[in-house]
Design a protein around this nucleic acid. Structure first.
Lengths: 98, 98
DNA sequence: GTTGTAGGCAAGCGTTCACTTGCCTGTCAA
DNA sequence: TTGACAGGCAAGTGAACGCTTGCCTACAAC
């Protein structure tokens, strides 16, 4: 089996999924960048600490990798863990209308 | 956006993921069949009511469809909702070792 | 050094969630 | 009709989770 509970836990929260959307749109953002853009584009009023905790969960799931540079910490998305999902439950190709 | 929170909520629980594994292995099982086989193969000691509630969540997420026949209710897996995940965050092809 | 910025750590709070318990409905066989 | 079987409904409980609050560390500009 050897499944990864952290992966599904990370995907379980709507704010974390929005963060993945944000990093898909613009990869390598800092914490404050993400906070600002989430408030702008998605109307999310999440605090900095909340986003920070979300990023920690995403990093533990392997969906986000970080890169430190001075006092900045850049966050990069990595979608490869998602492959385990479609490998576990194969998706039927193009289902025709019933 | 139009994401489906129910899908990720359904995938968020380990027992529900095991149920999906079980239905992948043998599709169209009844509630009692699933209970029995989960106890046998996976050592899960979940009660009937617990499994029933899990199946309701999976059905609401569109991952499981049901078919009534007399006093039996057969459960069928449908992995097509999973497609929205890989469409939302495209997966890189075959990452080489760093 | 002092100030401002980027981020981290940890305790507390309220909600959500999985599971149990108990009882009820519907179907089939004897 | 009676009893066994397959499943459903709803309230209650304990744990996990998301978020806040408050304080602290590290780096950079003045």
């Amino acid at each position: 089996m050897a499944e990864d509970p952290d992966l599904f836990k990370a995907l379980g929260d709507a704010t974390r999924r929005t963060i993945l959307d944000e990093l898909t749109d613009r990869d390598g953002q800092t914490l404050f960048e993400i906070c600002g853009r989430l408030a702008m584009k998605h109307g999310l009023a999440s605090s900095r600490q909340a986003i920070s905790q979300h990023l920690a969960v995403l990093e533990q799931a392997g969906l986000v990798h970080t890169r430190r540079q001075g006092r900045y910490k850049f966050h990069h998305i990595d979608t490869s863990p998602l492959r385990s999902i479609v490998e576990r439950w194969p998706i039927d190709r193009e289902e025709p209308d019933p």
